[in-house]
Design a binder for these strands. Structure first.
Length: 286
DNA sequence: GACCAGGACCATT
DNA sequence: AATGGTCATGGT
């Protein structure tokens, strides 16, 4: 067992807010999931996160980085605009963090996300891991609330070696050719996901958008959830509903006007604010 | 049984 | 530039 101190960490909101798709609550109220090649059971504690790992020697720095336990979340939410909708979202999601995920897993997962509900994305990703991911060696803990958690997320090289029908067997439908082509571009080195780290947001976004199946929305998700570009602002149907319903209740803003609004209204951590709005809308059923 | 889901892409206007 | 249809699958 290891412990990661954190101030004001909301584990449930963080893991269930649709940024990552491999976390499941178990019957004891802990969260089971996979980071890299490590199966983990995480439990909320008053002053941090308790972790049980499948590894004899847990990769503590990787876990802390993924969970972002060290950041000052109150300093971030303090930069959000002081308007009623945003303050309501902060109150409803207090302690919600943005994760810092592996770029490939995040990219592949969000290619599979288009016009799918979060539960279905979890099912597709789970099937993909069970079929094509490497088995995790379970030295220390015995799961599993979900069998797919016994497998790592498949590498780009592994998926690149498959056929489109093999991918379709994981129920991803028309997204299969997108994922396959992107996996081949990544594994061939034609696009280096690490090279994005030293780019500024617009250039990194344009680079991701050259990949098949990746448009502005999915690119923004990857920039925000994997790389930590906190000005990336994904607009999906929920966030669109939040903006229109909470900020423009009467008139219907054009797409252009709406885009300008989200780029100017939410401050230096706009992407973070977006995640609060997203989770707020989904949990409050507004 | 409709309706919709953390969209992208291509063909029309 | 801006809409509209299409893609595959399953939850609500």
């Amino acid at each position: 067992m290891s412990f990661f101190p954190a101030n004001n960490y909301n584990l449930a909101a963080t893991l269930a807010s649709g940024q990552a798709f491999r976390w499941y609550p178990n019957v004891q109220g802990a969260w089971e999931g996979v980071i890299g090649r490590e199966f983990l059971m995480l439990r909320q504690q008053p002053n941090g996160i308790e972790a049980h790992s499948s590894n004899a020697n847990p990769n503590s720095s990787a876990i802390q980085h993924y969970l972002q336990t060290d950041i000052d979340i109150d300093a971030i939410t303090a930069t959000f605009p002081n308007d009623p909708p945003m303050q309501a979202a902060i109150a409803a999601c207090r302690g919600l963090r943005l994760l810092r995920q592996d770029p490939w897993e995040c990219l592949a997962s969000f290619i599979l996300s288009s016009t799918k509900q979060i539960v279905q994305i979890q099912q597709i990703v789970g099937a993909l891991c069970e079929c094509y991911g490497e088995e995790i060696s379970m030295a220390a803990v015995c799961p599993c609330s979900n069998n797919s958690l016994r497998f790592a997320f498949p590498s780009a090289a592994k998926l690149a070696s498959l056929s489109e029908p093999q991918l379709r067997s994981c129920k991803m439908g028309f997204r299969a050719p997108y994922l396959l082509k992107t996996a081949r571009l990544i594994s061939s080195g034609e696009l280096d996901l690490e090279s994005l780290r030293k780019m500024k947001t617009p250039e990194a976004r344009e680079t991701l958008c050259t990949l098949p199946g990746v448009g502005e929305k999915i690119a923004n998700c990857v920039l925000l959830f994997a790389y930590g570009f906190q000005d990336a602002f994904p607009v999906d149907v929920w966030v669109q509903k939040a903006i229109r319903q909470l900020y423009f209740p009467k008139r219907k803003p054009s797409a252009k006007r709406l885009k300008h609004f989200v780029q100017t209204h939410f401050g230096p951590n706009a992407g973070y604010a977006q995640q609060y709005l997203f989770h707020y809308m989904r949990t409050q059923r507004l």
